[in-house]
Design a protein around this nucleic acid. Structure first.
Length: 353
DNA sequence: AAGCCGGGGAT
DNA sequence: ATCCCAGGCTT
């Protein structure tokens, strides 16, 4: 079972020409669109990304528009996608492209790799897809395809396995007539045919040279060490309305105790380990406002990282017309919440109140 | 090398 | 309920 990069590249290109999905960022693969799509696609599935990509490009059509925007507007567009640091680095990166590359996305691989938020994978994707350069990509899809093709039995995340996988990815892209096509084909094959479960070996263009298929172990590969067990945690969150129906939100300056990242608006909340103990006094102290008429909503369950989070919304009112709260707190009309940078869990809480 | 950072679709 | 996804940065 010989690993023949030339043959693999040819078969991938042929297959891709017939089976590639039409995706928004494929219609016009200029560096800006490829960059935005690749950042969004980090650890995020295609179906999730598509509507975000369309909205983002409409709002920020080029590097200059993104660099001119406020970070809050970028975070608001990102709300619900997760990994919010991606949005911060995207924004910082746009400003660096203005400052050091005259607003033109750099085509030099080392220059791309130097940009914030762009690592080896994303640099390879941009260099190959937007600039046609023979740079390798290795993502979860390519890892799986190559691990099966070569019957790699080591943990794919180990240093030794990663070295081999990057080497094979390099061999394939360097044998390609079109690096853009072959890199996208590797990823597309992993997404559509060489899937984690029930791989479609019968329709795979590489089945004849797949060592895992030959040995009948394609379902056992790739080998990944199992994740740590998730932990349970419960929060009580205060959905506080003033006499005018405005709701109190707060925003932390830096990441700390909370699972939520900084920069996003959230409801005042505390860890609530024992339901016997009322969190109201503590919540009231955090909000800096006296509260009345509390009603408890049904818990919201939310999986985040390796936590299983139970969120309990405590809807409450505060008497009188509150005008002053200590920053970074602010009263918002409910209709304003849609345009604020906010995590999915926070929106769930408001809906559940 | 290991830990950290979200959210959702597929099964 | 579990897996895993077009990763990168920090320690």
């Amino acid at each position: 079972m010989k690993f023949d990069p030339q043959s693999i590249a040819r078969r991938l290109a042929s297959w891709f020409s017939r089976h590639a999905r039409e995706l928004p960022w494929r219609s016009n693969p200029d560096p800006y669109r490829v960059w935005i799509s690749e950042i969004m696609l980090q650890q995020t599935q295609v179906a999730t990304v598509i509507p975000y990509f369309e909205r983002f490009i409409a709002r920020f059509p080029d590097v200059r528009a993104l660099a001119a925007a406020h970070l809050d507007d970028v975070l608001a567009q990102w709300s619900g996608l997760g990994y919010y640091r991606r949005a911060r680095m995207l924004h910082a990166c746009s400003r660096e492209i203005i400052a050091t590359h005259g607003g033109e996305f750099p085509g030099d691989y080392e220059a791309i790799l130097d940009l914030p938020g762009i690592g080896r994978y994303t640099a390879g994707a941009i260099a190959s897809i937007a600039f046609g350069q023979p740079r390798p990509v290795l993502d979860g899809n390519v890892e799986r395809v190559l691990a099966r093709l070569t019957a790699l039995r080591a943990d794919v995340k180990s240093a030794a396995a990663q070295k081999k996988l990057w080497f094979w990815a390099t061999e394939v892209v360097e044998a390609a007539k079109s690096p853009s096509t072959v890199n996208q084909a590797l990823m597309e094959l992993g997404a559509m045919v060489c899937t984690p479960q029930n791989p479609g070996c019968k329709v795979c263009p590489l089945r004849a040279t797949c060592a895992a298929k030959h040995a009948g172990i394609q379902e056992q590969l790739p080998v990944r060490r199992k994740a740590a067990a998730s932990k349970a945690i419960r929060y009580a969150a205060l959905i506080l309305c003033d006499a005018r129906g405005r709701v109190l939100l707060t925003r932390r300056e830096k990441s700390g105790e909370s699972l939520l990242p900084h920069g996003l608006w959230e409801f005042p909340h505390v860890v609530w380990p024992a339901r016997k103990v009322s969190p109201l006094r503590e919540l009231s102290a955090i909000a800096g406002v006296s509260i009345t008429a509390v009603s408890e909503a049904a818990p919201v369950r939310h999986a985040i990282m390796n936590y299983r989070v139970e969120l309990v919304a405590l809807a409450a009112k505060t008497s009188g017309r509150v005008t002053k709260t200590r920053p970074p707190q602010q009263w918002f009309k409910p209709a304003e919440l849609a345009s604020l940078p906010m995590a999915s869990a926070t929106r769930k809480l408001f809906i559940a109140r």
